[in-house]
Nucleic acid binder design. Structure first.
Lengths: 225, 225
DNA sequence: AAAATATTTTAGGCAGGGCTAAAAACAAGC
DNA sequence: GCTTGTTTTTAGCCCTGCCTAAAATATTTT
């Protein structure tokens, strides 16, 4: 039977599979801020339910039914995040905690109605793609970390790698939000920082770390000098 | 610390206090579909937290802090019900279960934003008053059960006593919804049933039980014959 | 390959909240 | 006042999911 904790584990496993390919207990300890023994415990529970395949000391893989639950939970999470930002006017750094709770509420029917009410959004407030009701969620976009952009590029922010509160607030303070178009004006080999130009003409220098977490699309049209 | 179960108990105690004046363990067993021993257990927990005063074998009363939590939970429950009906187009008999989950999500801030988004509704889809952020919720309306109406009265449905799914679906089948205005055309002493006239001119006879659960307002203007 | 280090599992507890069965307290009827 | 029936409490158990400590297995280093 599905519980909040089990859904959280399945969602974490799905995300780690995407990010890293294979899922170690250690990676779950980190992602879920828990203890190794708790992970082993829960993996047994999930394996007994047929949601994961688990071989001792070897790692874990989602089964089809486990992936279905994980995708559904992720879908709910991201739709509720859109709700909180679009309808209740929260900022993108405030919504994660509540979405963690909301993702465990509602069935497919409710989720689909929420989806329709929100206008079938394709991306959540952090630029992450929202799985469809059929469980599709590869977004087909070709995003690169802003750290890979070179001088002269015009780039548009389409997502973030780390959607933690601290990082998002950092972007807020820099007046960087989803959809913003920036131009790379300088690049320092020394610390791999870059200077960017905002649409209003202002400039600022961003650190390598900040740039690595920004997922951008290179715009075809070059900037005019 | 607040948990889902504790909030459920506090809300149940509040409702029983309103309905019956005093709260017995038995009444909680019925309201929460649980067992006597579970109630005793939880009342100890709630008393230790300072949310209720409990004297063995004597009954239980909410403290101020307990009442605050109960009212806040009830407020969230009813606001989410409005959301589900107004925004996601659920019918009034479908929303209770999800609202039971949603009422445990979010803080005051989220609740107040939801309230504003919904346009500060005063009543939920069953006609029950929604407590304000300050915990006021006496609605001042003077509602009577429809069973008290007499022939010739024009009555408007403003709420229901029992908002269980079965009863609400019964009303749906009769094309009775909140705000509907009916006229009493016949009254049978025999079984205390009454015949009512719909705005479209159709008629139907309602049982005593059905009428007792409908909370109505008598409209001042008499019906024209 | 052996030693040192890191990861995972087992063993055994704990807290929350549910349950049953039996005992205790209260309420009613005779 | 006793007896009967109902309500409440106690006692003891179960399940979920967390934890620590220690043992077992992998991996890395030398």
């Amino acid at each position: 039977m599905q519980t909040i904790s089990r859904e959280d584990y399945l969602k974490a496993i799905l995300k780690i599979e995407e990010e890293a390919g294979s899922v170690s207990n250690q990676s779950l300890v980190e992602k879920l801020s828990t203890r190794p023994a708790s992970v082993t415990n829960m993996l047994h529970t999930l394996a007994d339910a047929g949601w994961v395949e688990h071989e001792a000391y070897k790692g874990v893989r989602l089964t089809d039914s486990g992936k279905e639950i994980a995708l559904s939970t992720l879908r709910k999470h991201r739709l509720w995040e859109v709700f909180l930002v679009d309808k209740l006017s929260f900022s993108w750094d405030e919504v994660h905690q509540w979405a963690e709770d909301l993702e465990h509420v509602g069935d497919e029917e409710l989720t689909n109605r929420l989806d329709a009410f929100l206008g079938h959004p394709a991306f959540d407030p952090h630029g992450d793609p929202i799985p469809t009701a059929q469980g599709q969620w590869s977004d087909g976009r070709n995003l690169i970390p802003a750290s890979k952009a070179v001088v002269g590029d015009r780039i548009q922010l389409k997502g973030v790698v780390d959607s933690g509160e601290a990082y998002l607030q950092h972007l807020d303070r820099l007046k960087i939000e989803l959809g913003l178009i920036l131009e790379v004006s300088k690049s320092l080999d020394f610390d791999e920082s870059k200077t960017l130009i905002w649409p209003d003409g202002s400039e600022a220098s961003l650190s390598k770390q900040t740039l690595q977490n920004m997922l951008v699309e290179k715009l075809s049209g070059k900037a005019k000098n």
